[in-house]
């Protein structure tokens, strides 16, 4: 950041994927900015930049949010989870496995957001119908797959006991 700009920096303290994070940031920085630019967590993608497509979805205290339009300061004192936090010690979650098994992605640009939105759904609800999945993921756009394999993958993960 240029020295000459006199923007009052603010403190951001939160957890990201279970780790404590303490940063001084500009108030205008979005959560996506902080994750991608300051923390190097580039798995979170920005597409529409307007909360329409769901690509930037992360979990804030377990709830899916669009990180592209959420000011990072809003995450103060809260728990942020991103796609990088899904796998534990290199083992994929049943949902991630199901995405691979069902080819529930092509280009992969929507995948991180799709996985986070579906993770929130699976953590909330164990028994899912196709309609449940369609309803919960309606805010996430995929331009490659035609959605069918994504629904299949989420249902398979629910079966497998995500």
């Amino acid at each position: 950041m240029p020295e000459s700009r006199t923007i009052q920096l603010v403190d951001l303290a939160c957890t990201v994927n279970g780790r404590n994070v303490a940063l001084r940031i500009e108030p205008r920085e979005t959560l996506a900015d902080v994750l991608r630019e300051r923390l190097g967590l580039t798995g979170t993608k920005v597409s529409c930049d307007a909360q329409v497509c769901g690509a930037c979805t992360v979990l804030l205290d377990g709830q899916p949010v669009s990180s592209c339009t959420l000011l990072a300061v809003e995450a103060s004192g809260r728990a942020v989870r991103t796609v990088e936090g899904l796998a534990r010690d290199g083992s994929l979650t049943p949902l991630q496995e199901a995405f691979i098994e069902h080819a529930a992605f092509q280009c992969g640009f929507c995948t991180s957001g799709m996985l986070m939105a579906a993770t929130a759904l699976l953590e909330e609800q164990r028994h899912l119908s196709r309609e449940d999945v369609v309803h919960a993921l309606e805010g996430n756009v995929c331009r490659c797959t035609g959605y069918v394999p994504i629904v299949d993958a989420v249902l398979a993960a629910a079966e497998a006991g995500q």
């Binding site: 798995g43 979170t44 796609v83 899904l86 991630q96 691979i100 080819a103 992605f105 995948t111 996985l115």
Partner: peptide
């Protein structure tokens, strides 16, 4: 897919 793991882990 060969790119599976890379794309589901970010």
């Amino acid at each position: 897919r060969a790119d599976g793991r890379a794309k589901v882990t970010g």
